[in-house]
Nucleic acid binder design. Sequence first.
DNA 1: ATGAAAGCGCTAACAA
DNA 2: TTGTTAGCGCTTTCAT
Lengths: 355, 355
Amino acid sequence: MPPYRRSTGPGGPPAPTTIYDVARAARVSPATVSRVVGGHVQVSPSLTRRVQQAAAKLGYTPNRVARSLRRRDSSLLALIISDIENPFFTSLVRGVDSLARGFGLSVVLLNTDESLDEERRLVAVAAAERMAGVIISPISERESQIEPLLRHRQPVVSIDRRLRSTSIDSVTVTNVKGADEATTHLISEGYRRVACVIGPLYTSTYSDRLLGYRRALDRAGRRFEPELVQDGGLKEDSGYAAVRRLFELRRPPDAILTTNSLQGIGALASLADLGLSPGPKLGFVTFDDMPWTRLVSPAVTAVAQPNYRVGEAAVTLLTKRAADPERKVQSIALSTDLHIRASSLRRPLPRLAEG
Amino acid sequence: MPPYRRSTGPGGPPAPTTIYDVARAARVSPATVSRVVGGHVQVSPSLTRRVQQAAAKLGYTPNRVARSLRRRDSSLLALIISDIENPFFTSLVRGVDSLARGFGLSVVLLNTDESLDEERRLVAVAAAERMAGVIISPISERESQIEPLLRHRQPVVSIDRRLRSTSIDSVTVTNVKGADEATTHLISEGYRRVACVIGPLYTSTYSDRLLGYRRALDRAGRRFEPELVQDGGLKEDSGYAAVRRLFELRRPPDAILTTNSLQGIGALASLADLGLSPGPKLGFVTFDDMPWTRLVSPAVTAVAQPNYRVGEAAVTLLTKRAADPERKVQSIALSTDLHIRASSLRRPLPRLAEG
DNA sequence: ATGAAAGCGCTAACAA
DNA sequence: TTGTTAGCGCTTTCAT
């Protein structure tokens, strides 16, 4: 495949309107145009008007590439997420967007699709484009690399997942506690064999959730049984397969905790195909509270994450880091919230109390 | 709020490594370094190696901002979508990603959140950053503006929705036919009063779907009843409200077509709250075939869109336009596919035949 | 308050 | 094949 390159022929990129064209039309110096466009330096009202009219007449669009080069700074904020199809990330985007705009930053999303190669490439892109800052959900706690960014002192904040080697600011949720609460809830409802469908353990999110699951078992005096923990990957199909394996065990579980929303969907499909339904006989809880959890019947108990606030907090940390690179590294962990519904109850809940 | 600006103090942006530093270390000219980094010009093996070693030792990251300025071209492809939380768009992203990479382009997502103001801002950003091309799902057929892009002859392709004023390349699906088929299916199943929950009519997608709905009614000799068409907006809550209104009618419908996935979720929730369930007594079809359509009970009939291929086609058109700006404008309409399931059948389907 | 001029880091003529 | 050099469009001293 030939590299993409815009035609440079007769119909190709036209001679662009520059600050010089505007200056000539307004009969001022280029510097004055720059000052008017930039907006933060005093220019006399009369010249300001002349410049604005000339700019409008010529259809002038400032060239931010040139500005970035000159100022050694851009106004793009990269949000590198690991799966654009995962609702957890997409709802987080809005939190980032809303705050970033106030700082004059434009958010651009880069999707790594859970591939380390792609992640490396995109980190390089954000570095090469000298973006103003980077918020990233790293694929792997130990293998994800962000050196190119640090080299340029570009502010970096990790979200959802921690990053081992480097000490950078981060925003996560209380994963250990969330999984612990969910598991404890199932146990206290009276379920006896609680299984856990987990995600990749090289991701801190999932190692933390597994830890929370084990803590709850310990506290309840239950034995940890490795066979009750199955890898459910990050998508529907692997969640489906994990549940299938659980029910091929000699002693299958009577309750399941899935650790992300897509897994949860796959798990439910699997149960349906097995002729099983969550509820009194089979407890079911999932991480991530999405619209479908209330839609299915019975409604599904979920560990809700404050996605929007995670995004906001990340921007806040980013701006603080930008203002003061020497600042002490800060890690924020926001609380999850267990929304209890019929899928994890041994007896029906009174209607009004439903989440 | 102060504009975001990276600290320039002692801990601020360091003197970056440039092509000159590498040149000095490798004892060659800057041009040679550029040629090695760029990769497409012949450089002797010995110099190539010296340059690569020097670059590695210094931790050199090319400055793409400078490159873009000099070449008047960038390698960023903007994908401006109207709702990051809408699964239709997110699954389309992957189609764009996969093809774009082959052309050496990096895809950056910009989210307009269905706001015309935000759309205008982001179009300006893509123009100011002189991005290599723009794929956009315009908010409004008549009000969306892309002039700043055309002025710079930046290739633009619209997806999912058409754009009125300007003649630009576009990729959509066969919305009229899709809605027609869905409605016809409901009618031929024997449902008598088929309602349509529609989206904003200033968006071509929805005006087309409404047209398809009406055509099907016409062909079947049914009278069009305005009260059976309710605005369900673009999100769950408005879909919920639309269905509620339908059942406050003196003569409520006995079948419903919702015209996007989020509406569909809201509609189902509404039905559940009304104590109604899709199936023999109440036909239900939605646009967009998402994982949840097979999960709920009964499974939901859906008009599936070829999201991935829409993304791919958009990139193809973009590259063709880049290669030849004089090229004739091309509009592609990909076919939808009706996946029939229990929610729109008067009698249960044999299990094997389910979509 | 305004203008002149240098330079951000790179690429592409052009020359050797 | 390699080096020299000009310039992409802008911002920012430094003068005035």
